[in-house]
Measured scan of single mutants.
Amino acid sequence: MPSETPQAEVGPTGCPHRSGPHSAKGSLEKGSPEDKEAKEPLWIRPDAPSRCTWQLGRPASESPHHHTAPAKSPKILPDILKKIGDTPMVRINKIGKKFGLKCELLAKCEFFNAGGSVKDRISLRMIEDAERDGTLKPGDTIIEPTSGNTGIGLALAAAVRGYRCIIVMPEKMSSEKVDVLRALGAEIVRTPTNARFDSPESHVGVAWRLKNEIPNSHILDQYRNASNPLAHYDTTADEILQQCDGKLDMLVASVGTGGTITGIARKLKEKCPGCRIIGVDPEGSILAEPEELNQTEQTTYEVEGIGYDFIPTVLDRTVVDKWFKSNDEEAFTFARMLIAQEGLLCGGSAGSTVAVAVKAAQELQEGQRCVVILPDSVRNYMTKFLSDRWMLQKGFLKEEDLTEKKPWWWHLRVQELGLSAPLTVLPTITCGHTIEILREKGFDQAPVVDEAGVILGMVTLGNMLSSLLAGKVQPSDQVGKVIYKQFKQIRLTDTLGRLSHILEMDHFALVV
């Protein structure tokens, strides 16, 4: 994948999101292997301009796509893939009243899908469409860049269908997702969380590099694949309309690839034109409109599966009536509230959605109805927002919020430890010299600072030695090549209790 991002070429006709291997024109390309080798690009942008032909009021008969309808489940399912879809609609009884809503608040519980998330729908649909058009064949390999849930859905379907599955996901995604993927037989590649989507090191860039190296491999490409919004247009939206008897006044959905909100909203605009569509985008993402909503100094966020630093091709923002931004604290607070007060075992993005819903639905009156999409299960986040310690460490809970008995030293300040200034190293000294210094002084790690004293990161003896043994660096290389740029900081005025929580999850903390 090139470091400079080429513009994806656009073909003359058809839909841009065809499933299957992508040609340089962004659509299915038939021909000899030699032709494909000559024409197939190194990668295709996940934010390529959409060429979708959908228009409100256009006859369904003019759609270029294969459409399906929700099917009634048999008493005995032939395999677990038949437990994807037909998820329950559940009334939220307490939270709406707590925040003064007059309307009825309903939750579409997508964590009841077989793999635990709304992404099971698009995973199965992308595979079925690729099999139907002859792209996927027995023994082929599926590769997908994902925040985890699409990966789980694909790995689940691949396990049943017999495909090899490789999932490329950023490091910030939970260990629970990784464990589930491994249990399903998927191979996992992790990428830096802070890598831009168009960087060769991003999950998108690495996935395309693997595709170019592995024979008979395919990126189904949830960011561009029409099967993504079509899955929701054909099934999720129809289920909502049936469950609500066609009567709903507002739908609120958090947005990642945009397939969920695009597919549902398009069908609702056709069948229930008075329904307002509300999009939820986390602070630090750029999906919301108008652009002024996205202006923030924050560039990272903890909530998973929603928000991006690019506009995915499948996201149709014209069908969203209003956007709201959400933050991590309210997302996790509301997710825990949904679990504790409503018994809905949902993930953090569901918290984002409901946090926005109780604001947006203030305009609705008694007798009206708001539906929220709860995308995934708490299963993926047992060591994250479900953990009091994690919430404390991230600053989303305060010590006084917890009532468990603490040891005698818990409320003492870090400054009472009488710490001395640490050994520091410059980023320009060599790895070999740094190892000598650390061994001589008896230290395992040291902060790396520039000549102005600005902290650049941390270097550890173990990481340097393993990097040297693996051949990633040489003793003569500058130590700046092996620094940890993500590390926890703590102030002298913070409590030892807070430091204790940090050290339970990290090997060190830097006192500043």
Rank of each mutant, 00 (worst) to 15 (best):
P2L: 13
E4F: 05
P6E: 12
A8L: 13
E9Q: 04
E9W: 04
G11F: 04
P12I: 05
T13Y: 01
C15R: 06
P16D: 05
P16L: 11
R18W: 13
S19C: 01
S19Y: 07
P21M: 09
H22F: 12
K25R: 08
K30R: 13
K30F: 01
K30E: 14
G31M: 01
S32K: 04
P33C: 07
D35C: 04
E37Y: 12
A38V: 13
A38F: 15
K39A: 08
E40M: 01
I44W: 01
R45C: 01
R45I: 12
R45Q: 10
P49G: 01
L56K: 08
R58S: 05
R58M: 08
S61H: 01
S61F: 08
S61G: 01
E62F: 07
E62I: 14
S63V: 07
S63F: 12
P64V: 01
P64M: 10
P64R: 06
H65T: 01
H65A: 01
H66Q: 15
H67I: 09
T68I: 12
A69G: 14
A71V: 12
S73V: 11
K75V: 13
I76Y: 08
I76F: 01
D79V: 14
L81G: 12
K82F: 09
K82E: 10
K82D: 01
M89N: 01
R91I: 07
R91G: 12
R91Y: 12
R91F: 08
I95F: 10
I95P: 01
F99R: 07
F99E: 14
K108R: 01
C109I: 05
N113R: 04
N113T: 06
A114W: 07
G116S: 07
K119I: 04
I122F: 04
L124R: 06
R125D: 12
I127V: 10
I127L: 09
E128Y: 14
D129F: 06
D129S: 14
D129R: 03
D129G: 06
D133G: 06
T135P: 04
T135S: 01
T135M: 10
L136H: 01
L136G: 04
K137I: 08
K137A: 07
K137H: 09
G139L: 07
I142L: 09
I143K: 01
E144W: 05
P145Y: 04
T146I: 05
T146A: 05
S147N: 01
G148F: 06
G148A: 08
G151S: 04
G153T: 01
G153A: 01
A155K: 01
A155S: 10
A157I: 06
A157Y: 09
A157C: 09
A158V: 15
A159F: 04
G162P: 11
G162L: 06
E171V: 14
M173H: 06
M173F: 03
M173P: 04
S174I: 01
S174W: 01
S175F: 10
S175M: 01
E176F: 01
E176L: 08
E176R: 01
E176M: 04
K177W: 01
V178I: 01
V180L: 11
V180K: 01
L184E: 04
L184R: 05
A186T: 10
A186K: 01
I188Y: 06
V189S: 07
R190N: 08
R190I: 01
T191H: 01
P192V: 07
P192F: 07
P192S: 10
A195G: 04
F197C: 05
P200T: 08
P200A: 08
S202G: 01
S202M: 01
V206A: 08
R209P: 01
R209V: 08
L210K: 10
K211L: 08
N212G: 15
N212Q: 09
E213L: 07
E213A: 15
I214A: 06
S217N: 13
S217D: 01
D221I: 01
Q222S: 05
Y223W: 01
Y223L: 04
R224D: 04
R224F: 01
L230P: 13
L230I: 09
Y233Q: 01
Y233P: 01
Y233H: 09
Y233D: 01
D234L: 12
T235V: 06
A237V: 13
L241A: 13
L241Y: 14
Q242C: 14
Q243C: 07
Q243P: 05
Q243G: 01
D245Q: 10
K247G: 08
K247W: 08
L248Y: 01
A253S: 07
V255F: 01
V255H: 01
G256E: 04
T257F: 01
T257V: 03
G258Y: 08
T260F: 01
T260D: 04
T260E: 01
I261M: 12
T262F: 04
G263T: 04
G263L: 01
A265D: 01
R266G: 06
R266I: 15
R266Q: 07
K271Q: 09
K271H: 14
K271I: 10
P273C: 14
C275Q: 04
R276Q: 01
